[in-house]
Design a protein around this nucleic acid. Sequence first.
DNA 1: ACGCCCCCTAAGCGCTTGCTCAGGTTCGGG
DNA 2: CCCGAACCTGAGCAAGCGCTTAGGGGGCGT
Lengths: 210, 210
Amino acid sequence: MGAEAQRTEEWADVTPDAARRLLTAAVQAFAERGYHATTTRDIAGRAGMSPAALYIHYRTKEELLFRISSVGHRLALDILRQARDGAGTPAERLAAAVRRFVRWHAEHHTTARVVQYELGALGEEHYAEILGMRRDTDAAVRAIIEDGVAAGDFDVPDVRGTTLAVLSLCIDVARWFNVEGKRTPDEVGELHAGLVLRMVGYDGTLPTGV
Amino acid sequence: MGAEAQRTEEWADVTPDAARRLLTAAVQAFAERGYHATTTRDIAGRAGMSPAALYIHYRTKEELLFRISSVGHRLALDILRQARDGAGTPAERLAAAVRRFVRWHAEHHTTARVVQYELGALGEEHYAEILGMRRDTDAAVRAIIEDGVAAGDFDVPDVRGTTLAVLSLCIDVARWFNVEGKRTPDEVGELHAGLVLRMVGYDGTLPTGV
DNA sequence: ACGCCCCCTAAGCGCTTGCTCAGGTTCGGG
DNA sequence: CCCGAACCTGAGCAAGCGCTTAGGGGGCGT
């Protein structure tokens, strides 16, 4: 499945068609220039519409950002929760979590960039709502690490700090990942999964799997 | 030494006084709201001046950003080069590099945020100039890791990828570090130094030092 | 005492911004 | 054939933007 196919799939349940086109146009524009440097005319232009058309489907420019941020956080959270609740040893589940989380940030790095770096532009209420999802994200990763510590598979002196560092390492992929670069999302995910297992003091070999 | 003292010290060689006040005002504003959401009136207001005063000391708003970015990158690069060229084993030098680099990103997280996340707002020529310094940053860290591999102290299958990940982990501190939080810059630096030594497969204990 | 230069402000110019609104087009159901 | 609902556009408004300009005040050397 190519990146293009996934990009449309990601917003598949946004209707009507024009609203989805505006949304994907906004994702691209926000990712390229940032929220504040993007004009409503630019978004509408990319979607092949007049500026006024935007306001039929969204009340403000900020609502567009919130919708993107909301869907993006939901997707990222689902990835981590699936790994947390999946089968296998803590090492296998942590490796799977990192692999998929990193792969998502690389593959959908435009969306991920908006999701991770444009939070500050959200309105107060929307920001608070997103913050809740981010706390859940942290909790999901922490749960896996705590499982590993309890099982005696991991050696982690500072669980909260290490959780933060693991998430930090994964999220930052969205900042530097470049489609023109030599590394595929799969390769980056694999590399990071290995690094994270070392960070938690797992002394076995990197488990394979999705 | 408090953060306040360091903040002024950081821009000590910027003269005259009004130019420095404008610069520090811009750093705060850019870090809080982002470059594009910051107005020249806001910057001038924070510095206790009229909007026009800005243009006596700086030709454009973008030049202000470039100056900040330039000084910030220079400071960060110096930290890493000092660690690279310092005495000690590769593990000691890598630990020192991460400790100090992370500490800088935590202590000066306002400056660091502008330096790391507002690159895209730079003009083309200024951007190219900054990019050169960023390549040097990468090279400095890579050199230490290569030393450790050559000495047989580190086990790193993918040197370039791991270098990128190490830098990534350190840089991202600027995004999440919160002065209100419970962790001091020193503690965060210590934690990350330990994590990075694990990432490079160093099997000794964390060396102490600056 | 005087002229000079540096530093600053008040006012505002030209432009772009987010957003609005009256009016037109398209299309399925009766 | 007509109606109403859904969707879209052209034109434009008020506000805010980066930046400019004309002019004033204060401290310096002479």
